[in-house]
Amino acid sequence: MVILSDILLFLTTALVVSITCLCILLFYRVRDAYIGSFLTVLVPLSLQMCLSLLVTYLTRTLPVGNLDANAFQVFALGATIFSVLLTTTLLLMMSKYLIQILPATDKQRILGNRILTFLILFFFLISLWVIIAESKGDWQKALSDTIAYHFFAGSMFLVIHAVLSGIFVKKATTWEEERLLKGIIYTFLPLFFLFPLDLLFFRNLPFKLVYLSFSTLSVYLYYFISRRYFLTWEQTDHVDAEGGKEYGLSLREEEVLRLLAAGCSNQEIAKQLYISPNTVKTHIKNIYAKMGVNNRLQLFSRLKK
């Protein structure tokens, strides 16, 4: 079981880090808002998984005398605090990312952001208090407990995200919103079942089944990026936005259509037209209805030169 755990930890870490690197390269090239949002989640996730892999390697390979040395104790203390900060950052960024894509009102977004931020910061303070109290100055034990229990316990917060996504997914107005909300549901709803399995079979092992959920999220984001970038953006070179005039679009809808054809995201359109993202979503929904399409791929196909 230990060997299997190590192999799974290495494979899931390699997968998440690879997809994170891909997102970094794409963001450097296109500066897309969606990819930027993904990176706020993927970067702390990659660092957390790499830290788990590093700690597992060090505790397996270093002699016992080195593990008890002051230098390693200092490292263990720093790694413990860093791990707690990474987990908290991941949960916080995941919350902000979810609230950003929810088809909710501004008041609902503000309220949801405040509630989730309060819960996560409370979790952070409780985590530090419990880890320090339980370790009693033995920072190697604190690090071991943090790697073994803290990250996968904190992941249970993401079940809330899956439930919220399930509530709002039917209100999505664009295929991006719908796909991303469904991705969160498919990724984090299984945590209901994975968490007890971790407690039963992987409790004292560095790999946890909840890592599979984060790997699934990474793969899903890669799929989303592939579809959005390689299928949607690359088609915009052959799109004639003027072709939308025959469908009775308003002047504002024509402006939105031109920016869509240029490959702009909803957030970018909102900034350029000085309107809210929700207003952009409404215009896009109206454009889809007037042109008889359901997503951007169909829209670009209809506007092909």
Rank of each mutant, 00 (worst) to 15 (best):
L231W: 03
L191V: 09
Y186R: 07
F192E: 01
E178P: 01
Y211K: 14
I225G: 02
V219Q: 04
I185S: 03
Q235N: 12
G183C: 07
F195P: 00
Y211S: 13
W175M: 06
L231R: 10
L191C: 06
L191I: 10
A241F: 02
K182Y: 13
S213C: 14
W175H: 12
H238L: 13
L181P: 06
F214P: 02
L180W: 01
E178G: 07
P206Y: 12
F214M: 11
V239C: 02
K182P: 03
I184L: 14
I184C: 05
G183Q: 03
V210Q: 13
G244Q: 13
L189Q: 04
E176P: 05
Q235C: 04
Y229K: 04
V210D: 14
F188M: 09
F214W: 14
Y211N: 15
L209V: 05
P206G: 08
S215A: 15
P196D: 08
T187H: 01
V219S: 08
I225V: 15
Y229E: 07
K208L: 06
E176C: 11
G244P: 13
G244H: 11
W175K: 06
Y229A: 06
L212F: 14
S213I: 03
W233G: 01
K245V: 14
R179N: 09
F207P: 14
L200T: 07
W233A: 05
I184N: 08
L221G: 04
V239Y: 11
L180E: 09
R203L: 15
L231G: 05
F224G: 00
R227W: 01
L217V: 11
D237A: 14
F192N: 04
V219H: 07
L209M: 13
H238Q: 12
Y222D: 01
T174M: 06
I185R: 05
L212P: 00
F201E: 10
N204L: 03
L221I: 03
F195S: 04
H238V: 08
D237P: 02
E242W: 12
G183H: 02
R228W: 03
Y211E: 13
Y229I: 15
T187G: 01
L209Y: 15
F214V: 06
L181Q: 07
I185T: 03
F195Q: 01
T187L: 06
E176Y: 13
I225L: 08
D240Y: 02
L200V: 12
R227Y: 03
F224T: 05
F193V: 12
L181E: 04
F224S: 03
L217C: 10
F195E: 00
T216Q: 12
E177F: 03
T187S: 14
L197G: 06
G244T: 11
L191R: 04
F230E: 01
L205P: 10
P206Q: 08
L180C: 07
T236F: 11
N204F: 12
S218L: 05
D198K: 04
Y229T: 11
R203C: 08
L189H: 03
